[in-house]
């Protein structure tokens, strides 16, 4: 099973870099999906993941170790990092310059390469289409749609990510669903808009 997030986070706070590496390993995929669904660009999302974890290390005294997973807090850091992208990339420019982006051309056969490129474009297009459908929402409503509907994060965790009460997440979701349904009556039946439906709509 390995150590819990709580154990690892305790080690991080005392400056243990390896514990931080283990937490990265555990949550990198979920953070990446969230970053991708925020910015709609594979390249930017890869960079945003690094900035998120660099900021998490820098701010690690702000989170006290708890029994729960640190993922909601990481997503909160990612949310802010995405909003302050220009500033964040400047602050971490030295780090980002050392970071080669993944390139599907490396170490793969032609066919695999084509497939990897295609699946990246698919993912980007799918995310952008979904983000387009949220154009009529306000920022708070879009936050909960991205977290709960696109990323399957629970309402309580989403509340932690956004630093609001669970009730606020519930009411934002309720309003967002109503608006989405009104805007895309044919696309998104109000009673069906949940995680699986949103995912099923992805091409």
């Amino acid at each position: 099973m390995g150590e819990t997030d709580e154990d690892l986070w305790r080690d991080c706070i005392t400056g243990n870099a390896d514990a931080f590496g283990a937490l990265f390993d555990r949550h990198a995929d979920a953070v990446f999906r969230y970053c991708l669904s925020r910015c709609g660009s594979w390249h930017d999302a890869e960079e945003l993941v690094s900035i998120t974890f660099l900021e998490a290390w820098r701010q690690r005294d702000r989170l006290r170790p708890e029994k729960d997973t640190v993922l909601p807090w990481l997503l909160g850091v990612a949310t802010n990092a995405n909003r302050n992208r220009a500033r964040g990339s400047r602050r971490h420019a030295d780090f980002l310059a050392r970071l080669p982006h993944s390139d599907p051309r490396h170490g793969q056969h032609e066919a695999d390469h084509a497939e990897a490129v295609a699946s990246r474009l698919d993912a980007e297009r799918a995310v952008r289409e979904l983000l387009d459908t949220t154009a009529g929402l306000n920022d708070g409503e879009r936050d909960v749609v991205v977290l709960c509907l696109m990323n399957g994060i629970g309402q309580e965790e989403a509340a932690k990510t956004l630093g609001v009460r669970t009730g606020t997440v519930k009411s934002r979701l309720h309003r967002a669903r109503a608006k989405l349904a009104a805007m895309n009556r044919d696309l998104v039946p109000i009673e069906q808009l949940d995680t699986t439906i949103v995912e099923a709509r992805l091409p």
């Binding site: 080669p100 490396h106 995310v127 992805l202």
Partner: peptide, 12 residues
Amino acid sequence: MNLSEVTYPEDT
């Protein structure tokens, strides 16, 4: 294409 199947590329 399902968002929940997207992973952070292994080499990165």
